[in-house]
């Protein structure tokens, strides 16, 4: 038996870095690399990528830094939706007015991610693009019915519902040359939302389980609901059965508890060094129920004031 330490040797290779200033430039770089020897990796905040490259967990000979792309930056408002640039630092989401009342779950998810420094660096798109089932942004965006706008070097962009983005453990629908440009959140007047996370500590941790929900009531009855879970399976999960059980009901502890149980029934978390499958399973109903309770308490439309406090 013999041994090598660190990343496998691959002498003669070089390690390159490009920072295109526009999607056109990016397209040109990708075209010139197509079929070549180098495997490019996209860099956004780099909070995971650089660490993984240094430890040898990931390998690359070309890193393409997306941070100079104006097309991926800023917030765009349309009449019926808000577009969040994929490069928005997580920290900026914590207090983003454009998210409106209905976007509270995303604000809370942003606040719960990593540390202040990491939130300054990490981006919305990067958190999704990683493909992790526990990504804090993921559950929140599912609960908010987000749509992702993707870009390809040939100019053929597409829009993908966030629920269709994940394709199995660590896998996404992104092609090798495809980039998340923007996350579109539909206007959802009268909705409220909430996000909760359980980690080993009260900060700085990857979620063991997280839950995001959103609710809309009409005349004191739940008219529509979204429930989303991270850490409950190989991908972020939307337990539609739990949602269906809520619709047509008055907000109550009993119905929220029922929704939590239904959410757990369709969950299939894996065990890891961070937490066992059993623990994750046991958290799912609790976090779902509590997030629903919180969201219900936040319903503030005139129509629903009388049920705003859940008994």
């Amino acid at each position: 038996m013999s041994q090598t330490v660190g990343p496998a040797a691959c002498q003669g290779d070089s390690f390159g870095y490009e920072a295109p200033g526009s999607l056109e430039e990016l397209a040109a770089i990708l075209r010139s690399e197509a079929g070549g020897e180098r495997t490019p990796l996209f860099l956004a905040g780099g909070t995971d990528l650089w660490v993984d490259l240094r430890s040898g967990k990931k390998q690359a000979n070309l890193v393409i830094d997306l941070k100079q792309l104006p097309e991926l930056s800023g917030v765009r408002e349309r009449e019926d939706e808000t577009g969040l640039g994929a490069l928005l630092p997580i920290h900026s989401l914590e207090s983003l007015p454009a998210l409106g009342r209905e976007g509270q779950a995303l604000r809370e998810a942003a606040s719960a991610l990593g540390s202040y420094q990491v939130r300054n660096r990490a981006t919305l798109g990067g958190n999704l693009g990683n493909g992790a089932p526990t990504a804090d942004m993921a559950a929140a965006l599912i609960a908010l019915d987000a749509v992702l706008e993707l870009w390809r070097p040939d100019g053929s962009g597409r829009r993908v519902a966030v629920t269709d983005f994940w394709r199995g453990a660590g896998k996404t629908c992104l092609g090798p040359q495809e980039v998340i440009c923007r996350v579109w959140l539909p206007r959802r007047v009268g909705w409220s939302s909430a996000f909760l996370k359980q980690g080993p500590r009260r900060a700085m941790d990857i979620a063991i389980v997280n839950a995001a929900v959103s609710l809309k009531t009409v005349k004191g009855v739940i008219a529509d609901a979204r429930v989303a879970l991270g850490g409950a399976g190989a991908t972020p999960l939307r337990p539609v059965g739990a949602e269906a059980a809520l619709v047509g009901q008055k907000p109550s502890m009993a119905i929220f508890r029922r929704a939590g149980e239904l959410a757990a029934e369709v969950s299939d978390p894996r065990g890891s060094g961070r937490a066992s499958r059993e623990y994750r399973l046991s958290l799912i109903p609790v976090l779902t129920e509590r997030a629903l309770t919180l969201a219900a308490e936040r319903l503030t439309s005139q129509d629903d004031k009388k049920v705003a406090r859940v008994k």
Partner: peptide, 13 residues
């Protein structure tokens, strides 16, 4: 050599 797998890093100004 780079600290990452003996790949010589390119340089930038």
């Amino acid at each position: 050599a780079s600290l990452w797998g003996e790949k010589a890093a390119t340089k930038r100004r």
